[in-house]
Structures are given as C-alpha cells and as structure tokens.
Design a protein around this nucleic acid. Structure first.
Length: 349
DNA sequence: AATCCGGGGGC
DNA sequence: GCCCCAGGATT
C-alpha cells in the first residue's frame, strides 16, 4: 500500500478502538486522574494542566503534590497571598502561570467554576489546550486537545513533516472518540509520552503501528521536522547584594522576565554600556554605596542567557529573610557567590 | 505566524 | 550543545 492510499484509508473507528484498548491496559496512573472518567475534580485537573504546560510529567509530579497540599481547594488558592503561591511555584519556571492561577481562582470563587470549554477559555492562563483538557476530563465535553504529544503522534500517523497548528487541530478533532473524549485525549498524550517519543519511538509495541506513515517510511523520528528556534541572546545586567545569603535587600521583579518573583536589586545594561555605569545607576536608585565585585553568574533560559555581575553594596534599607521569598535560579546563584568567596578565602574551594 | 516566557531531562 | 516538554499571551 502506498502512502497516499494508506492516508486516505485510515480507518478511524479501528484506530480509536486500538488506542483506547491500549490505554485501558497501559495508561499511566497519575494523581490528577482520580475520580470517574469524564467527571474528574475540575480544580485538580486545572492545576495539573497549568503545571504541566511546557513541563515534563516527572517534574510536574513533585510540584503537584506540594501545590495541592498548600492549596487544596480553589477557595484556599484564591484566599492565599500571591507571594505564597509564587513560593510554591519557585523553581518551576514560567511564573505567569502562578500569577494567572491565583487570579483565575479569585474569578472562580466570585463567579463560579466554568463547566464548558468556552467558559474555561475565558480564564487567564487557560488557552485552547487547557480548556479542552479540563472540559473533556472533568465535564466529558467532546473537545480534542492539541499539545506536543498530539502534534508528534498525528504528524507521524499521517506522515506530515511540517504540521501547522490548524492541521493538527483538524486531525485531532476528526480522530477524537466522542464516546470517551477524556480517555481518548489522555490516551494520545500517554502514547506520545511513553511510546511515540521524540528520540527513540517504540514502534514495535505501538498500537497504531499498522497505520503509521512515519513508521512505514523507516524514519519515524523525521516526523515532525524540528521547529526553528530563535537564537539565544545575551542579556547583561548588574545586581547588588546588600546583606548576606540569609538576609538581604530584595525587590520585586516587574515585567515579563521573572515578573512577580523577588530578587537582588538589579538593572539591565544597555547595549555596550559599561558595567560601572549600570552599577552607578542602580546604587543611585537605591541610595546605596557600591562595593567590590563578588563575581559574575550566568543563567541560561530558552531564549536568553543572562550574564549578571554581582557587587557588594551598603545601604540602610531593610533586609528581608531570603528563605521566605520566591527567587529565580538566577538569584540563588548570585546569593551563592558569598559562600563561594568565603570558601576560596579559606582555601576550601 | 513569530516571539517571548524558565528550568530541567535526556542524549 | 541540542531538542524537547500535557502552552499561553502578545505582537
């Protein structure tokens, strides 16, 4: 059978049955999958879906238990201070997720928990993927999810190297089993996460292998083609450490980059701006006296590499307990410079 | 459609 | 190093 014929002939009911049968035997047991199929606790599902955005399940599990213990209900989340929510999210990245969770919790306590795709889509931090996931898993609505797993599974099944978002959504909609929408969505994602993996897919045990164009091509990992990514840009900045690792002057970061988190007072360097000039600007703003350079830390993220010069400084500003604040990895590295410096002075290294 | 937003896993 | 991860908001 050639490729075009196989694609046209894809027997959707058979594919649905094969996938659901596999899922009933091999689906993952995950803590947000409590309760009856299609009628899960919407709060638990919602928190999990937000947490798992661009975050691998193995990592999400750790944060999930911690977050649910701290905020066991939407009311508890809504009533909590935003700083407590960010502290629970510390180290997990994409902190707008935590800010939007808190904001949306307040909206739900005031206006009720949505029970439809459209209702969920209206909440901050909830896009097409998350709305479809909650609507199908908690309310049994026939909405197909479209995430990285779905994209890869369908690109391979149909032999499409360059799947656009509308293409993936249309194929997912067409394939969705309306008798078990929640289970079907979970099944595609489980297949993508455990069988149809990016690097070394286990085609020999895949329930869809018989219909898979990518497998027939002999090179399944060529589907989909890697996404073109923007180059990583360097960002220069200066910061001051006033105090020590336990008690330091901290300020809240504004804007998109690490917004909402606390951190050492800092200033971005303009292109080609001397570090001394940025330091002077920073100390003027803080009414602080600049001291010695403690060191430089670098912090790589998906699109940026931050190169941060950290200086000691003195001022009369109040120092706050570092342990209670939500900090990015960048600031933890900066605070670690003091210990490293002491270590080298004593020859410990 | 592109770009930005963290941090880590796995290779 | 590179690609990817149960994406969303913004432009």
């Amino acid at each position: 059978m050639n490729a075009a014929l196989a694609q046209q002939a894809l027997p959707i009911p058979a594919v649905q049955q094969a996938l659901l049968t596999w899922f009933d035997q091999h689906g993952r047991a995950l803590p947000w999958r409590l309760g009856e199929e299609g009628a899960r606790d919407p709060y638990r599902v919602w928190v999990a879906e937000i947490l798992l955005q661009q975050t691998q399940v193995a990592r999400g599990l750790v944060y999930y238990e911690r977050f649910l213990t701290a905020f066991p209900s939407v009311e508890a989340l809504a009533e909590a201070p935003i700083d407590a929510v960010l502290k629970a999210w510390e180290g997990c990245g994409y902190y707008a997720r935590a800010r939007n969770l808190h904001k949306a919790a307040g909206m739900m306590v005031a206006g009720g928990i949505p029970s439809t795709y459209a209702g969920w889509l209206a909440l901050p931090g909830v896009g097409p993927y998350t709305a479809a996931a909650v609507a199908s898993l908690a309310f049994n609505e026939g909405r197909a999810v479209n995430d990285g797993n779905v994209r890869r599974v369908l690109a391979r099944l149909y032999g499409e190297r360059l799947p656009t978002e509308p293409w993936v959504q249309a194929r997912a909609d067409a394939l969705l089993d309306l008798s078990r929408p929640g289970a079907f969505n979970e099944a595609v994602m489980d297949l993508g996460a455990t069988i149809c993996t990016p690097k070394a897919p286990r085609c020999k045990v895949c329930p869809l292998a018989a219909w898979c164009e990518a497998r027939a091509s002999g090179e399944p990992t060529a589907f989909p083609a890697p996404k073109v990514r923007a180059a990583v840009r360097d960002v220069g900045a200066v910061a001051v450490l006033i105090g020590n690792e336990q008690h330091a002057v901290l300020e809240r970061r504004e804007g998109a980059l690490l917004g909402g988190l606390m951190g050492l007072p800092s200033e971005l360097r303009e292109p080609d701006e001397a570090g001394a000039k940025a330091l002077a600007r920073l100390c003027a703003r803080l009414n602080a006296t600049p001291g010695a350079l403690l060191g430089t830390v670098t912090h790589s993220m998906t699109h940026r590499r931050i190169v941060l010069d950290v200086y000691a400084a003195q001022s009369g500003q109040a120092r706050t307990p570092v342990q209670d604040a939500a900090l990015s990895r960048l600031d933890h590295k900066a605070l670690g410079l003091l210990a490293a410096r002491r270590g080298s002075l004593f020859g410990v290294e």
